[in-house]
Simulated assay, not measured.
Amino acid sequence: MTDLLSRLLETRDWLLADGATGTTLFEMGLSSGDAPELWNVEHPDRIRRLYRGAVDAGSDLFLTNSFGGNASRLKLHAAETRVRELNRAAAEIGREVADAAGRPVVVAGSVGPTGDIMAPVGSLSHADAVEMFHEQAEGLKEGGADVLWLETIAAPEEYRAAAEAFARAGMPWCGTMSFDTAGRTMMGVTAPGMVELVEGLPNPPIAFGANCGTGAADLLRTVLGFAEAGATRPVIAKGNAGIPKFVDGHIHYDGTPALMAEYAVLARDAGARIIGGCCGTQPAHLARMREALETRAKGPPPTLAEITAALGDFSSASDGTEPGAEPAPRRRRSRRRG
């Protein structure tokens, strides 16, 4: 039987995804440096509330609290032997919330990067990466996830390893990369490069796209780049809610619900079929995004000038594809999305 996400995409022009996981959990009391995946068994009520917040705001799809749920990440918290347990719990809570929604809602099993650098640049082998991703995928599958959702990936090698692992698990999947370095991922992938990567996989995703990065405007420039490169698969856009600011000991994002509503409409017009938010995006943002998508007619693809007029300036002049363009110096990412 065709998976739920594919069935929804056959009948809907767009789907609303969820918002931030990390931002929301910090507001619930998660401390910096703690593993949010442990809350799947220690505080399931809070994870249930996280998921319900997205569903109640109108999301057609939400990601499980399992972004860092692989053995390499969990080893930092002496929990590397609990991969299947924690991922299964994340998906089981999600299954409960989705089944009680009264409408079709997709439970997407979140899979983030391993945190290691893959060979030949680093020491993580392809085989070891596949094994890590496969272990996590099996836990999410056991818990009842509808699809797997790879996100915030920078390296094509890691994307390929995850695709192989998901095929081994027999699960449909989606996958996004984070374009946060002058139009490129941290490891140098451009929007056209991602289209080429996806189409060359033996087990391609249902949908692909971009999440996180440096801001909503930059992300939409990347989405336009997918279309210009000839992408035919459904595109995902999950942009941050504005720009991060450090306030009272925590990171806060300055994007208002009104700004994210503009972003959602522009993302749809740029060609995205699955539209959500990443860091800083709360239920209030999602509700305004849904309202805008439902009430505003689809328009032509926006120009770059229209994007910046609505969402603010790009963080760099380059989208990474100009002749001779070089990626900016690499920088380390936070372990969490959202």
Score class of each variant (00 low, 15 high):
201 L>I: 10
39 W>A: 11
70 N>E: 05
78 A>H: 15
163 A>L: 08
28 M>E: 14
101 A>T: 05
317 A>R: 14
22 G>T: 06
151 E>F: 07
167 A>Q: 15
10 E>N: 10
34 D>H: 12
199 E>C: 06
290 R>Y: 08
133 F>C: 08
37 E>W: 04
76 L>T: 10
244 P>D: 13
181 T>M: 00
29 G>M: 08
275 I>S: 10
10 E>M: 00
258 A>T: 13
73 R>Q: 14
169 A>M: 05
35 A>C: 15
167 A>L: 12
170 G>H: 07
243 I>L: 06
22 G>S: 15
189 V>D: 02
225 G>P: 10
23 T>A: 07
153 I>R: 01
194 M>I: 14
28 M>H: 10
331 R>A: 14
333 R>S: 15
108 A>S: 11
284 A>V: 11
321 T>R: 12
145 A>G: 13
218 D>R: 02
294 E>G: 12
148 L>A: 09
118 M>C: 10
32 S>Q: 14
96 E>A: 09
243 I>V: 11
7 R>T: 14
206 I>W: 01
12 R>L: 01
169 A>Q: 07
199 E>V: 09
199 E>F: 06
318 S>Y: 05
37 E>T: 12
153 I>N: 10
109 G>A: 02
322 E>S: 14
71 A>Y: 03
293 L>C: 14
149 W>Y: 13
108 A>C: 02
221 R>A: 07
229 A>V: 09
280 G>P: 09
65 N>L: 08
52 R>N: 06
273 R>E: 12
293 L>E: 13
65 N>I: 03
251 I>N: 05
19 G>W: 05
243 I>Y: 00
197 L>A: 11
303 T>C: 05
18 D>F: 09
253 Y>Q: 04
52 R>F: 02
131 E>M: 03
117 I>Y: 00
61 L>K: 07
179 F>R: 03
163 A>C: 07
239 G>S: 08
157 E>L: 09
60 D>R: 13
242 G>T: 04
125 S>V: 05
4 L>M: 08
141 K>E: 03
122 G>A: 03
250 H>F: 12
158 E>D: 04
152 T>P: 03
57 A>K: 00
236 I>Y: 03
46 R>C: 05
56 D>R: 12
84 R>H: 13
192 P>M: 03
6 S>I: 02
13 D>S: 13
50 L>K: 09
201 L>N: 08
303 T>R: 02
227 A>K: 15
185 T>V: 05
278 C>P: 14
135 E>R: 01
155 A>S: 13
296 R>W: 03
92 E>R: 15
324 G>R: 04
133 F>P: 11
206 I>A: 00
262 E>R: 15
162 A>R: 00
216 A>P: 05
273 R>V: 10
312 G>H: 01
4 L>F: 01
170 G>K: 00
129 A>T: 04
47 I>H: 07
282 Q>M: 15
137 A>L: 08
99 D>E: 15
199 E>I: 01
86 L>D: 12
133 F>Q: 03
241 A>W: 06
